[in-house]
Write a protein that binds this DNA or RNA. Sequence first.
DNA 1: ACCGTATTCAGCGCG
DNA 2: TGAATACGGT
Length: 777
Amino acid sequence: MKNIYSDLNPEQRKAVENVNGPMMVIAGAGSGKTRVLTYRIAHLLNTGIDPFRILALTFTNKAAREMKKRILSIVGESEAMNVWMGTFHSIFARILRIESELLAFTSNFTIYDTNDSKNLIKKIIKEQELDIKIYTPSYVLNRISSAKINLISAQEYSKNSELTNADKMSGKPKVAQLYVLYQNRCKKANAMDFDDLLINTNILLRDFPEILLKYQKRFKYILIDEYQDTNYVQYMIIKKLAAREENICVVGDDAQSIYAFRGANIQNILNFKSDYPDLKIFKMEQNYRSTKNIVNAANSIISNNKDQITKKIWTENDQGGKIKLLKSSTDNEEGRLVANSIFENKMNHQLHENNFVILYRTNAQSRAFEESLRKLNIPYKIYGGLSFYSRKEIKDLLAYFRLVINHNDEEALSRVINYPARGIGNTTLEKITVAASQANISQWEILENISNYQLNISPVTRNKISNFITMLKSFAVSLKKKNAYELAKQIAMSSGIIKELYEDDSPEGLNRYDNVEELLNAIKDFSENENNEVVLVEGEKAENSIRTLDEFIQDIALLTDADKNLDKNTNHVSLMTIHAAKGLEFPFVYIVGMEENLFPSIQSVGTRTELEEERRLFYVALTRAKKQAIISYAETRYRWGNLSITEPSRFIQEIDPKYIEQPKIVSKQNKEVFYNNNYTKKTQKSQKFSQATFSKFQNKNLKKISNLNTPKNDDIFETSPSEELQSGMEVEHKRFGVGKIINIEGTGPNTKATVFFQNVGQKMLLLKFAKLKIIKR
DNA sequence: ACCGTATTCAGCGCG
DNA sequence: TGAATACGGT
């Protein structure tokens, strides 16, 4: 083992060498958090602690992989492999598979992803003959999910008048009922959704003391990364697991908590001390990433937040350049300006493209930058699109696999029962579903014994069903006999999927065929490569056995971000949301769209806590920069098809002026930059052309702007009855439900209403966008 | 079963 | 604006 201690500063070293008792590491941005975590694990192993006794939990697969890799390089493979390290979901899924019978699941249970959950909810809503437009699947799923995160079961939800009243007020009184039905259907399908992996673990540890003791003894040392992102159920599980030994080490940074919107509870880290009075706190405040300017600017921003653990981040790095400010008149011009700036910096500093990142608040902003980068022939990559595993053809094939492993998997069944088309259509499936819910069993059980049921299904269809069932059973027989690849290939062929895609010679069809081939290759790799992340459980040796398809599915069920990893092999500018950039760093960082109502987002300006989260998000964005940060905003922007006049973000003013270049008179400069761009690339002839297009472009935009300012003109005032709205009225909003107007301010297109909604609290809405229906005057 | 048109909706997104 | 989905016609 290499000498790890010399790589650490005194504070890091203290944290690494503190072995026993509860501890918290507050790790500022760029302070070497991962190093402390990995070295601490190495240190534990060094002092002779059994790797099987160490549990390390992360939020993302990427973080887990990264840590594994680093520990491996310090302590060697045999040791590192036995540490229980992974995401909350993957570790708990492992435990739940072992203990599944206690919760009346079987160990081959399916994990429903968000898509499966939404599909199921959609079906239930339709079966209940509710209006899908009122009960949108994502709304219902969100309600269910946030209840689950707070450990409120379907039964408790129904009895909780606060929740059910909120649902009634927002015109959706049936949410509780949908929750009950959804849980039943998951149960019958032998399936758990992502939240179930957490709540069922909590139930397991809560209701089975001997199981709790078993895992308390097993996990003598617990480490948790990104503790500021934990939610209530995760907090409860951790608390239980750590209760016996209290060797718990949490690492995080309250200033980088940016996931409250999906249930993360920042109080978990702020109040950690009250859970463990003997807590030792280590603050890592030296930043190794950024220049003094960036660190100081970031400090000046975050000091505007009330809720925080006080700390002073500092650095020994160079002073660096001040933050630059780019101002554009339109969103498209912003794209050009940023692309030009990247081009200039790249040339001036002789840099590769992967030194640059463009960070935005919303994915919809990427377009202008794509276009401009393409025009300058700058390679780029957008992160955060559709992942491989969410493509239709991949999901279809995986659904076959899932159904082979777990016949009761309803979502998999409905995907493939008629794909490729085999004459078992919607009407038949509906009849089956009704019969299944009447008999309170899964659809498969009906299908399997269809002759026992008096259903209005023709003999021809019955025959087709029986063929389908026979086929799947034949696959299932091979599940433990054939290796994953052999079986996968057999399924792909016999099911007709390969044939179907092969015969489709459209470009998309070819692409799909390639994707399926890629999946099969991945499975081949998995089958043949013994070292492929063997899921080892203590006392359970992988005795040279073959790698089977269910093992493969278990491995990938929780892998949703396969191509989320930063691609370091090609040279390109990266484009991503700020959320996606967490944990990454780049020499040059462009933070774009710094405008009020976009960043901070309009949905967040209503409450202090939400605004503070936006501010932390800005803090995260800025602290990604190593050498230079550039902030950009536009004065007008198309949003939802409308041109709106925007104001610079309040966050720009919050930066101490010492650390940011003050804006110049920019409109003239913009033009120059614009011409330069074309000039560098084209001949003088095309320069004339670009001048012409530029003025055209200008005229076009001027026209649009003047349209917007013409008072008698039109659609702005049509969309909401803003003149009629007054404080005190009761109104309804599509997403937020019913609420009461507290205040109206502003005029014309900038009229805003502050509304207190029963179930989501206070919000400020721009009436131009928000469609409010008056319920009571 | 399939295609073109109408309609709707629009925040960030781990597992 | 534009992507995604629902619907209605062939």
